[in-house]
Amino acid sequence: MSSGAERPTWTSHLRRQVASMPPEKLLPDTQPVYVASWIYVFGALTIGAFIVVLLSGAVIAMAGPSWWHHSSFGHFINSTHLWSTEFFFAFMVIHLWGKFFMAAWRGRRRLTWVTGAVAFLISIPIAFTGYLSQQNFDSQWIGGQAKDGINATGAGAFFNVLNFGQMLLWHAVLLPLFVGLLIAGHVILVRRRGVVPPLPGKGGA
């Protein structure tokens, strides 16, 4: 076994990837001047709201429907879960508008845009399966309405909106896991490429 020479293995590939992201690049404490604008705060605000969503959701999932429907503290955490979701979507969409108007996919940042867009698209069924997980007449009614449309596509065989356990699994585990991984990849890509420079202005920036 000779050492030193790079072999075309997945371990050496991964080692190079990790080495290209040292801690000072992953967690910088300075940024170019143009980043001093409120619009750049919205990605981090989205992460903050997402963390509150995860924590409040974990609490109500563990305590169960009778707690979140019948105790005042349960109501409070349930409401925290709803409102942090509202903020998550609002911050995410304002972030999207900002990145759209600065064409932030320029300079090999296409995948940053795509991971963000896919995270957005997956967040929508998280909200939908959340409405199905409420365990009240509202969620029963929504499930009853949704089943015919979904069964008509054939997906009802493995995605059954009347099955609370299955909907809660998608809502509380699988889909948030996908979005969490996408956000991690998204942020690593931003750190790797650096923040996109502003669009050239008319008559000099």
Partner: peptide, 30 residues
Amino acid sequence: VMIAVFALAVTLKFPGHEEPVAQEEVAGDE
């Protein structure tokens, strides 16, 4: 409200950056 927040985020001054910083830093990497 979201449109209003977006407009404020783009127009309001970000605190703590009164002094002009060297212009070279703005140069793009395109």
